[in-house]
């Protein structure tokens, strides 16, 4: 099942300008990640498509982040990372 969102040419500076190594502070990185990803939450949470894998490939590519950074850094609630009310 293809991803309906095109993650290839998106502006990742919302993440890359705020989440920086070598420390990758969790508060900044996770908030930046949510600011980027929350608009696409429904498509990302659909594990029948490739959206999530594709998005992380580009995030890691544009930000040169270590694999698994956001998965190991970010925890909110038992269901996942809570998105701000729109």
């Amino acid at each position: 099942k293809p991803c309906p969102v095109n993650f290839e040419f998106m502006n990742y500076t919302i993440i890359t300008s705020r989440c920086k190594g070598p420390r990758y502070p969790a508060d900044l990185c996770c908030q930046a990640f949510k600011d980027f990803a929350c608009p696409y939450a429904e498509d990302l949470n659909d594990l029948e498509n490739e959206c999530s894998s594709t998005m992380f490939s580009y995030i890691n590519l544009y930000g040169s982040y270590p694999p698994g950074l956001f998965a190991s850094l970010c925890r909110d609630d038992k269901v996942g990372l809570i998105c701000p009310a729109s």
């Binding site: 990803a37 929350c38 949470n45 999530s52 992380f56 998965a71 269901v79 996942g80 809570i82 701000p84």
Partner: peptide, 20 residues
């Protein structure tokens, strides 16, 4: 109400290298 979230299932894709 706001019940939007990024699931951990989705987040776990961050661990999978794209070549796999």
């Amino acid at each position: 109400t706001n019940n939007r979230y990024i699931s951990y299932g989705s987040l776990s894709k961050n661990n999978v290298p794209c070549s796999r």
